[in-house]
């Protein structure tokens, strides 16, 4: 609190009366306009509250005279970006998948657009970057159940897997155990045979016993050497990639219960350009064989 206004001996200036531990503050007056600027900012603030949405009510808020609205702002920004994207999207729609992949500019655009669409629609099951999970195929490896060319990937995305749609990828492995087609001992032997096909440690005698059973029951789809068949989505059994696990118990369970995932078709949900960009993106994830 100001105590005593006195005249400073050295400068001849009045003090403000403020004193801190013997240090006194000289009164060096500010120009008046400085103060007026403070008043002007207060008036500006009031104007701002009138011009823009400011005061909350119980249900809504004041709209402001300018009618500004951040949602409208967003819509405008989105429209602007749509407009910027339009020429390239038109080219993507017109071009074949091979042409997109062959054109550096379109490829970059498609991968960027595909990445966003993938994160929104696909990553929930297939994981970010297509890493996959148990039961959900890894899209970044070189093992493709239904084919990994651009056209095959696009077809799978468009129509899905086991959706009931005519064009969807579909196949059904018999439930050898659950439906009593094979005895538990035979299933255990078959599991040893499959372990042998993929070069893992196995019981050679059991595998030998299952040789005939494999040829009768499995080879028609999975191939006589376990090489798989993309026509019917039959997985390779001779490699190191296992969708449902590659150990003895997991293989036996797959034989007994038969497993197969379902993926929706996306033709109805995504537009043609997005579907194409998705195909190019997935192809570029590292698979594509």
């Amino acid at each position: 609190m100001p105590t005593k206004i006195e005249k400073d001996a050295v400068t001849g200036t009045d003090t403000t009366g403020h004193e801190w531990d013997g240090i006194k503050e000289l009164n060096t007056p500010l120009p008046k306009w400085w103060l007026y600027i403070l008043y002007a900012t207060v008036i500006w603030g009031v104007g701002y509250m009138i011009a823009y949405p400011a005061w909350p009510g119980l249900r809504s808020h004041t709209d402001g005279l300018l009618g500004y609205n951040s949602r409208a702002d967003l819509a405008e920004t989105m429209a602007m970006h749509e407009k910027r994207r339009a020429p390239r999207l038109d080219r993507i729609r017109a071009a074949s998948l091979e042409d997109i992949r062959g054109n550096a500019d379109l490829l970059r655009f498609a991968i960027a657009g595909g990445r966003v669409a993938f994160a929104e629609n696909c990553a929930g099951c297939h994981g970010a970057g297509g890493a996959g999970a148990k039961g959900f195929p890894n899209l970044a490896d070189d093992d493709w159940l239904w084919g990994g060319t651009l056209a095959e990937i696009q077809a799978t995305i468009q129509h899905g897997v086991r959706t009931g749609d005519d064009k969807a990828r579909a196949s059904q492995m018999p439930r050898f155990g659950a439906d009593g087609l094979l005895k538990p001992g035979e299933i255990a032997d078959l599991a040893e045979y499959v372990l042998a096909l993929s070069g893992q440690a196995h019981d050679a005698d059991a595998a030998k016993r299952a040789q005939g059973g494999y040829a009768d029951q499995c080879a028609s789809c999975h191939g006589d050497k376990g090489q798989g068949n993309r026509e019917v989505g039959a997985p390779r059994l001779d490699d190191r990639i296992w969708l449902y696990g590659g150990d003895r118990a997991a293989i036996a369970r797959s034989i007994a219960e038969a497993r197969g995932g379902v993926m929706p078709g996306w033709t109805e949900r995504l537009d043609a350009a997005t579907l194409k960009m998705l195909a190019v993106y997935v192809h570029a994830l590292g698979g594509g064989l």
């Binding site: 970057g129 490896d141 490699d239 990639i241």
Partner: peptide, 18 residues
């Protein structure tokens, strides 16, 4: 370096990083 997936196992047991 790609973080998802950290690496990809290939059918021949090889490993690929992006």
């Amino acid at each position: 370096r790609d973080r998802t997936p950290l690496f990809v196992t290939l059918s021949d047991g090889g490993v690929r990083n992006g």
